[in-house]
Every structure is written in structure tokens, then in C-alpha cells.
Amino acid sequence: MTTTLVYDGSFEGLLTAVFEVYEHRLEYVKLVKGEWRSIALFDNVMQIVTDESRYGRVLKGLQKKLSPSGMQRLYVAHLSGIDDADSAALGYIRYVFDAQQNIEEDYGNRYVMRVSEIVKMMRREKHRMEAFIRFQKLQDGLFYSVIEPDFNVLPMLIRHFKNRYADQRWMIYDLKRKYGIYYDLHQVEFMEMDFSEGQGAANVISSFTDDEDAYQHLWKNYFKSVNIASRKNTKLHIRHIPKRYWKHLTEKI
């Protein structure tokens, strides 16, 4: 019989769910994100109350059996927000605890495989963002960028941009998930605000520095000049830069 576990959707909540699985010796489980009340109509539902003493123990156990990179992959998979990511992570964790040896490379196991697939998708999106982010310089010296990534990769971008642009203030805003990261020359902070409605975009354009237009113009020209017409290959071009990314790319606008 399958037991439905209702949890809050957080990583800690997920780990607490793992705790309950072992505590109550559950075999078949299904994870559902959300409120207890709305789902409580079904049989065999269990509410997971995120609780530090419980997820802390699971975390400790995992750290003993997984390499640091294995831990990180699990977290990245969760971060993705992909529908079956947490279920895959749950299956993965149970396999970790049930197995005698380290199973991180057992790609024959479907959970290990699925987590690895999700991590791959996340890494790919992260790399895309590192490549496709375009900053625009505002009058107060802030370098500002808007993105709409497929997955929630903003937290994974912090290190790269902080190392690279250590001497300029910058902000990257995820329009889909309505939050951003801001670097003030010392540290990076998360910011929540809603740019999607109202005057946001227009305000930003009117506050560009004087030479912002000039450099955008030069970059577009550069992009045009490096093309070799006799080698044109639109299919390959689109495979590298899928169309959904074009609207935030200076050279493609």
C-alpha cells in the first residue's frame, strides 16, 4: 500500500520525510508538496512536519555515506524544482542507506540515473546563464541583468559572478521566479521584488549610462562582422542558442 507524504517542498522537509520513512518502516511512498488540509481527504496520508532534530540526523547519515560531491548533486537536483526531482532524490537517499557500498556511480539504478540526469540539466542551464547573461550599465554604476532560466539556477550562479566581477556592483534578476541576487562589492544577497508588472523595464532603460547604447551597438556590429555567410548553418546556431533565450541577448534583439 502506498503512503502519501505531504511535506512543505523544502530540502529540509524532504530529509524529514526520509526520516519518517525509516521511522515507520514505510515501503511504498509518494511525495506531495503542499498544505496538509487540502490533501487530507485521502487514505494513508501522512503529514511531514519539517523538524531539525529529524532532518539533522538524516543529513548526518548521508554525509557519512556520500562524498561531498554526491551531497551537492542531491541538493542541486532538489533545487531544480523539476516535478519528479524530490521523488528521485528520495529514492536515491533510500538506496544510499540500504546499500552496503557507495552507490554514487551505480548508473544502472534508476534513481541514481534520474538524479544524474537532473543534475546534468541544471549544470547545463547554469552554464547557459553564465554565457548568456548580458549586463547593462546603469547611471549609478550598477550592472544589471534580467534572465528567465528554465530551472532555478540563480543560487548556483553566485560564485562564478562574484569571482569574475569582483570590482563592479551587479544584479541578476530571475523574471520567472521573481527574485534576484545582488553584489555590493563585498557580498551577495538575495532580493525579492516584482519587476514584471508596471514600469520596471522602462525605468531601467531610462537610467542607462550614456555609453551603454554605444557599447550595445558596437557589440551587435561585432556579432554581425564575425559571421561567415558562406558557412551559414542555422540549425546548428539554434541548437546552441535556443530561441527562448534570444529576448535577453543583446546581439539577438
Binding site: Y222, N227, I228, T234, L236, H237, L249, E251
Partner: peptide, 15 residues
């Protein structure tokens, strides 16, 4: 990092 790709599909990484 390839920051962009030309219409012939080549990586644009450097000025």
C-alpha cells in the same frame, strides 16, 4: 565560455 554563437554555429568567446 562561449558567450554567443555566430549564424554559422561557431563559438563566440573572445573579442
Amino acid at each position: 565560455i562561449c558567450h554567443s554563437y555566430t549564424e554559422d554555429g561557431r563559438c563566440v568567446s573572445l573579442l
